[in-house]
Simulated scan of single mutants.
Amino acid sequence: MNLIRLGLLCSTWLVCALAAPAQAQQPYPAKPIKVIVPFSAGSATDVVARMVGNKLAEAWGQQVVIDNKPGASGIIAATAAAKSPADGYTLFFTSNTTQAANPSLFPNLPYDPVTDFVPVAPMATAANLLVVSTSLGVSSVKELIQLAKAQPGKLSFASGSSLSRVNGEMFKSMTGIDIVHIAYKSNPQGVTDLLAGHVQLMFTDTVTALPHVKAGKLKALGIGSGKRSAVLADVPTVAEAGVPGYDLTGWLAVFAPAGTPQAVVNKLNEEINRILVLPEVRERLLQTGLDPLAGSPAELGALVRNEIPKWARIIKEAGIKPD
């Protein structure tokens, strides 16, 4: 009887031993992928994450679940992403807010944008629009500056990301106006209060602003980048509109927790780059005011390392005090 039992145990062990390598070698992805997004639904990062996520799901036959974690300028989401298992099944679709600007805005970050993440793929560049409520009664950047100077400390600007905030602080610093900063969890919440008249102006992503601009509820006075947007060609840059030298552009990209296997990173990068050049994806990005930005993990890593000191300089010149 003992010999029979021993034989059964050996057989069971042999089956498990043979099955384990087969399971370990399952091609990636073998289960659903979670995508952490640091901003709320409807924001530019969220829209692009869902667009790319849907295409990944179609290509690989695995569900891609979007997990929005807005608040604290992306710190909540970035911390959660950094602490996630480094197996390729948790990705971080984010922006320059968490990976470039936050180190200079929050000196005690609970994550490191370089050492806690591995770069996967850049996705797009994104400029913010300067928008005001139509009820404010201004139709140009110069008129807004005049109104703010006539009412020091009376106007307030919303921000729902570090790009949004730094755009506003730069505008304040470069024009010499006194306007009050009001922070929100994400840009869509700031736009809601702008529409309600609780704040008077805001720099926000084109994805969030465009529907309200087209509906006539918000007035776009300028765009923060050095060039005009193809979807709003009649809207001048802020520099053209009266603030010479004004130029600030953000970007969106994909990261994974540090330690994620390079083979997984490479597969993700290849597929995301393929998705970004699909005509329907490229066209949708352009229609929302975003410019597709394909590239390698190494190129994204270099971008982050170059952008951190750049944002530190911009934040210092704008006179923003770390929180």
Rank of each mutant, 00 (worst) to 15 (best):
I179K: 13
S296Q: 07
P70N: 05
D87I: 06
V52W: 05
T98E: 15
V64E: 01
N108V: 05
A81S: 11
I36N: 09
L252N: 08
G295A: 11
T175C: 10
A20K: 08
V281Y: 08
A302D: 13
N187P: 14
G160A: 06
Y184N: 05
Q287S: 13
L293D: 09
S139M: 01
G245Y: 06
R50P: 04
A150C: 07
G190S: 01
A253T: 01
P27N: 04
A80P: 06
A127H: 07
I145C: 07
R165T: 15
N2D: 15
L144P: 09
A81W: 08
L129K: 04
Q189N: 14
H212D: 13
G61E: 14
L210S: 01
L300C: 12
A258C: 07
E299F: 05
A80N: 08
G250Q: 02
P211D: 07
R165H: 15
L268K: 10
G259L: 05
L293Q: 11
L221C: 00
P38W: 05
T175E: 12
L6G: 15
D205P: 06
M1F: 14
T94R: 03
D193F: 00
D205R: 02
N269W: 07
V213Y: 04
P70Q: 07
A100P: 13
P244F: 04
G216C: 03
K267D: 14
Q189Y: 10
V15R: 08
A24V: 12
K214R: 15
P152H: 04
T90M: 03
T94G: 10
